[in-house]
Design a protein around this nucleic acid. Structure first.
Lengths: 222, 222
DNA sequence: TTTACGTTCAAACAATCGCTAGATTGTTGT
DNA sequence: ACAACAATCTAGCGATTGTTTGAACGTAAA
């Protein structure tokens, strides 16, 4: 075979992955799947699009081998086909954030108030959580918490937060996190907590960013 | 602004980077630029496509802020707009290699003979090169060597190799490298060297893969 | 001015993509 | 067997993309 044709073939294969990453909706699906496996229905609801469109996008992702499926009764559960896919998403998002001013502007515009972001590094946060100096809460849906969560974190889904405020200590700082920098749930949580007199902050990391930083995650059964 | 619309905006921005990575030719350009800055003419020649088409692809990459330009007389030199872009390319290529069987098959088919690949880890190779136990040669064009190269490597472009065999020691192993796993130059070098009685091998790393592994690079002026 | 490098425009073609909507398949429970 | 539900498949629309080619344009060097 020709050398040129062979090279073209190689780059074409890599471009298959690139094509998968060229659609906003597919990127959103990848981020959702990075939180844990989900059914098509769930994905459609959480991404806010028609089930049939989600199915089409998932087909594209499946053909690029970025996702895998598992059947359970009527439901088909999709998951990322490896930790490296979540890592790829993180690197892609970080590169976009680094080079696209428009993205940084939109991100800053998103967080309602400044000063909600905890400025500490991951390691020192982990240590403080271990010591019980701070309380880390995971405000994502419980199923996502069970799939994977930060060490020492406590599951407290945003929708239940208001009802379960009594579970939280009033004398320690509450640090919330959610799906990642593009997710608004931890912002809402901080807003609610502060309004009720808690000392609260958030970190922008989700489980993928945490893992990409080389730090450990935990899983809980159920 | 609506929450849904805001999120769509974020993913759309990241998808701009994804779109840049969805074309085989653009990926090839990124890899070429990862070797050092190059003029449009050079890129066109090395990628084997028309100058005007290269210009169009570069425009797309520029609009995604993945490349920057510098004018020097008649020439316009393009370069990646950051080390992170090269890193992104490496992560993308590795993910593709991990998940796409077709790519792995094509890669294996490429290397003419097995056994040319040196199986040692980067650190131990670096140490042996420092001790002078092995000789590492960079078979890329000299300009790429000057832009960035492995520590202790000696520039010996493939086109000059045959003429400069006398420069190489016959009693030590020669380890060649080139632009990366998709590049054939180091394979050709090993083939030539072995035919002339040298003990030779290659590593698949290029400078980007080396840097992504957390190891240092060197630059030479001129 | 002439020459070389690079970009741009315009036109054309095939191919692909995102999305919508209707029909269909596969599984579960009654 | 039947209804209910999850998910996929299909067809079609409008829009965009990759590529080629010819021509023109702007810039800088000889």
């Amino acid at each position: 075979m020709n050398e040129r044709a062979l090279k073209d073939l190689l780059y074409e294969q890599v471009a298959r992955i690139g094509k998968s990453l060229s659609s906003p909706k597919r990127l959103e699906l990848i981020e959702l799947l990075a939180q844990g496996e989900k059914s098509v229905e769930t994905l459609a609801a959480q991404a806010g699009v028609d089930v049939r469109l989600v199915s089409a996008h998932l087909k594209a992702l499946r053909e690029a081998r970025l996702v895998e499926t598992r059947r359970e009764g009527k439901y088909i559960h999709y998951r990322l086909s490896g930790q490296d896919v979540a890592q790829l998403w993180v690197v892609l998002r970080e590169t976009a954030e680094e080079h696209l001013v428009e993205l940084r502007v939109a991100l800053e515009q998103m967080t309602s108030e400044p000063g909600t972001l905890v400025s500490e590094c991951r390691e020192s946060l982990l240590e403080k959580a271990r010591q019980g100096e701070i309380v880390v809460i995971d405000v994502r849906p419980a199923s996502e918490f069970h799939a994977s969560h930060l060490p020492f974190a406590r599951s407290l889904p945003l929708v239940e937060l208001e009802m379960r405020l009594a579970d939280l200590p009033a004398d320690r700082m509450i640090v919330a996190y959610c799906r990642g920098p593009f997710c608004l749930m931890s912002d809402e949580a901080v807003q609610l907590l502060r309004a009720r007199g808690f000392v609260a902050g958030k970190i922008s990391d989700g489980v993928s960013e945490w893992a990409a930083g080389g730090l450990p995650l935990e899983t809980s059964s159920e």
